[in-house]
Design a protein around this nucleic acid. Structure first.
Lengths: 204, 204
DNA sequence: ACGATGCGATAACAATGTTATCTCAACGTT
DNA sequence: AACGTTGAGATAACATTGTTATCGCATCGT
């Protein structure tokens, strides 16, 4: 629903992409989604886009440039997903909705999520700008938490630091679920629900 | 302190390693710790150990075999670290000590931690046995939580599921800290303390 | 003492990211 | 209008990776 409006932190670099550049990016995204990070090779991206290998270098400066675009695009889409549910009169319920949207995004876009949060592409390090943009996703959550605090539903605290805590908790559960560490018997969706309950109770 | 005793889940494969094999493993571990996952190449491991490349294949079946050994060794050492503080009469304090030991391990062994929890080595997937062993680390935490529950310090719940929740929370905070996502202004050690407080309060 | 066997080192191979070379079409200048 | 220049893009080359094949030679059994 926010797709028709301009996102506040949307990367400027994405706007000045020509047709070949955007085709390459789309091919890379599809490749990542369908075959995983191992399929993200320069040659496969180029051939999937129907252009020659060198375009990756002239447009993006190399493989890492493509990955960085996927990285920032991932955070933009994550921000959209968390922002989908609008604010209601129940600030606690809003936080729950936000958390569930977070998990849904991670599950539905596992490989993209792994590019954003794991070091799945060797030697790739997001630029400072990209990291700042990634961090700005926290503001969404901080705003929601601040509202819950002023409404008295949560105890007062630094909203940004609290947002980091909530984010880390959600990320941790999703992360372990996706990596399948721990006994297979663990009901991770239930653990995620437990986590949201623990967050609400622990911060009240 | 448990290094002179047999660990319950210590991988049997490590016991039947000859001198060359253990030298290779040591070289790989040092390489990983000092230069990061990118330095973990078959040739560098072998030359660092002073043997020829083929030994990696005859001993471990390839690079992934070495990585799997580092993987299970990492979880064994993590288990040791979390088990270092013995049980006291304050079950809540024990849990805090356990959590702090977890963070210290992750910070002190960042690259090993990334092998254990990020997909930092392309195409490496731990075997089922290794995953089970990794999951068994949860038992340590589950035991501590169970004691706190029977002592009345925490509300009753499935200990294993609660352990998964606590583990995921700690992992999430450490993980985001190590990856430096989010604003640089965030005081992650403080967030970690917040997390432990939230856990205790949220599960009481 | 001689042949077989098997281990290990060297070399070869496929695939990766990246860089260099080369071609040729489009443009400006006279 | 013709010619030199420039620049983009494709092909090919290069270094490095994991892995496999080949070959030599020591060791063991008979």
């Amino acid at each position: 629903m926010t797709s028709d409006t301009t996102l506040p932190h949307y990367p400027a670099a994405m706007a000045q992409l020509d047709s070949v550049g955007s085709t390459l990016l789309k091919a890379a995204g599809d490749l990542l989604a369908t075959e995983g990070p191992a399929a993200l090779t320069v040659r496969r991206i180029a051939t999937a886009a129907g252009v020659s290998t060198m375009n990756v270098y002239s447009r993006f400066g190399g493989k890492d440039g493509v990955v960085e675009h996927l990285f920032v695009e991932g955070f933009s889409r994550l921000g959209e997903a968390m922002n989908a549910g609008q604010a209601s009169d129940d600030s606690i319920a809003d936080i729950r909705v936000c958390g569930l949207a977070y998990r849904r995004f991670a599950i539905e876009h596992q490989t993209l999520y792994s590019v954003m949060f794991d070091r799945v592409v060797p030697d790739f390090q997001p630029s400072i700008d990209a990291q700042v943009l990634a961090g700005s996703t926290l503001q969404l959550l901080a705003t929601r938490l601040d509202r819950a605090m002023t409404a008295g539903a949560l105890r007062s605290a630094d909203p940004l630091r609290t947002a980091a805590l909530v984010w880390a908790t959600c990320h941790g559960v999703v992360s372990l679920e996706l990596k399948a560490v721990g006994p297979a018997a663990i009901d991770w969706p239930a653990v995620y629900d437990d986590a949201m309950g623990m967050i609400i109770r622990g911060l009240s």
